[in-house]
Write a protein that binds this DNA or RNA. Sequence first.
RNA 1: UCCCCGGUAGCUCAGCUGGUUAGAGCGGGUGACUGUUAAUCACUAGGUCGUUGGUUCGAAUCCGACCCGGGGAGCCA
Length: 466
Amino acid sequence: MSVATIHQALSGQIAENSNVTVQGWVRTRRDSKAGFSFLHVNDGSCFDNIQVVAPADLGNYESEVRKLTSGCAVRCSGQLVASRGRGQAFEIQAESVEVAGWVEDPDHYPIQPKKHSFEFLRQVAHLRPRTNTFGAMTRVRHATARAIHEYFDQEGYYWVNTPIITASDAEGAGQLFRVSTLDMMNLPRDEAGRPDFSKDFFGKETFLTVSGQLNVEAFCLALSKVYTFGPTFRAENSNTARHLAEFWMVEPEVAFADLDDLATLAESFLKFVFERVLETRADDMAFFAGQIEPSAIDRLRQVVESDFVRMDYAEAIKILKNCGQDFEFKVDWGVDLQTEHERFLTEKHCRAPVVVMNYPTEIKAFYMRLNDGGETVAALDVLAPGIGEIIGGSQREERLDVLTRRMTEHDLDLDTYGWFLDLRRYGTVPHAGFGLGFERLLNYITGMANIRDVIPYPRTPGNAAF
RNA sequence: UCCCCGGUAGCUCAGCUGGUUAGAGCGGGUGACUGUUAAUCACUAGGUCGUUGGUUCGAAUCCGACCCGGGGAGCCA
C-alpha cells in the first residue's frame, strides 16, 4: 500500500484498482444510510479534494469515522476506483480510515466549509492555508516564483543573494527598519548625547534592506546578467491593499544594456511568467477566475498575446492632456502619473500593456541615467491593464562625474556609497535593471484584491502576529 | 499619517428614529433520509451586542474616550 498525493491519485498517475494510501485533512463528511460515509480529503497537492468512501463495516466507523469534522487529519487506505458518483473520475474505496489528529471543539473550529471573509481569515493566518483560496494562492505563488527563476536561468542570468542587513539606504528616501543589538534601556551615548552606534553589533548604524539593486549592480558588472529575488523591508506607515512592510522583490540587472533592451526584457519576462503559471496551475487559476476575479485568466492571456506599446513620458502627457477625459489629478509635464492616468493609457488608449519611458529627472531616483539635456532620465514603467504600474526600472548612471554630482544634489554621503562609485571607476559599462514587487505581481495574476492575502504572513503597520 | 465605514452566536449578517425572554443562514450536536457532492429535512445547544465612561425610569440602539478591523488618500514595489 503506497502513499500517494491526492494529485497523483486524481490525475491518473496511479493505476485504477490499485491500493493506495492518502493523507490529508477532512474538508467535509456526508453520511449515507446505505452504509457508508463520504469524506472529502485535501492534502494541498492540488486544488481538488479526493472523495473517500468509508463503509460502515470499518471497525472504527461508528466510534470515529462518523465523528470526523472539517479539519481532522486522516490517513485513508483502500482501492483507487472509478467513481460511481458524478464530480470526480476516481475515488478511494476505503479499507481503513485512521484518524491522525482530531479537531478539538469542532463548533469553534474557525475554518468551516463555507465562505469566510478575508478580513476574518487574516486573524487566523495559521489556519487559512486550509481554505481553497489560500491553498490556491500558495501553489500559484510557488509556481510564479519558479517561473521567474526558470526564465532567468534559461536566459543566462545568475540569482544573487544580496544582503538583508545594510548600512545604506538605496534610494535616499523611504523609512528603514533599524537593526540593532544595543540595550535600548541603557543606550551608549556619544558626546552629543546621541546613540553611539560604534558600539552596536556592526560598529555602525544598520538597517533592513529596502532594495538589493545597489549591491547587485556590483555582480552585474562582472557576471553580466544577474537578478535578486528576496525579502525587502519598508517601515512606511502605509495602510493600503497594495503595501506591506515586508515583501519580496525581483530585480534583474543587465550589463551592456540600455533602456530599450530593458523594455524588451520586461516584456519577454512578463509573458513567460504568465504563460508558465497558466500552464502549471490551471486548476488554481480556474478557481481564481471562477470565484475571485472573472477576468483573471483572460487578462493574463491578453498580456501574453499582445505587443507592448512603448511611448515616451512626454508623449503620454500629450495623450492625457488631449484625450478629453476629466482626471482628478491635473496632468502636466513634470508631474508623476497617477493610477487613473496609468489606467487610462493602458486600458482605454492603447488597450495593451504600455511601457512609458524617459521620465522627468525631478521625480526619479539619483541612480537613473541622465539623458542628453538633463531634463529626463532613462527610466521606464510598465503599465498593465487592470492594475497600472507593475514594473519600474531604469538605465543606470554609469558615468562617475554625473553620478557623483547627482548624489551630492540628493545629499547622499559619498563615503557610504564609495564602493558604489568604485563600480564607475573600474570598467564601467552602460547597464540597466528593473524592480518588480512579487506580491503585486501575484495580486495581478490571481485577481486577489488585497496584498495581505497573497503572502503567507502579512506584515503591516501594527501587525506582526503569527 | 489624513478622510470615511464598521465591531451583535464558531462564521456571515439582520436588529440600531431607546421599551417585554436579541434573530436568521451556515457551522456544531441529535434524529430522519439519500452514491452523496458546500446534499436535504426536523429538533437542539450556543451570545456580559469591542472596551470603558456618560445621558435615561430603561441602552445592542443616543453621546464621549479608547482599542481593533476594513475601504479610500498619500508614500511606493
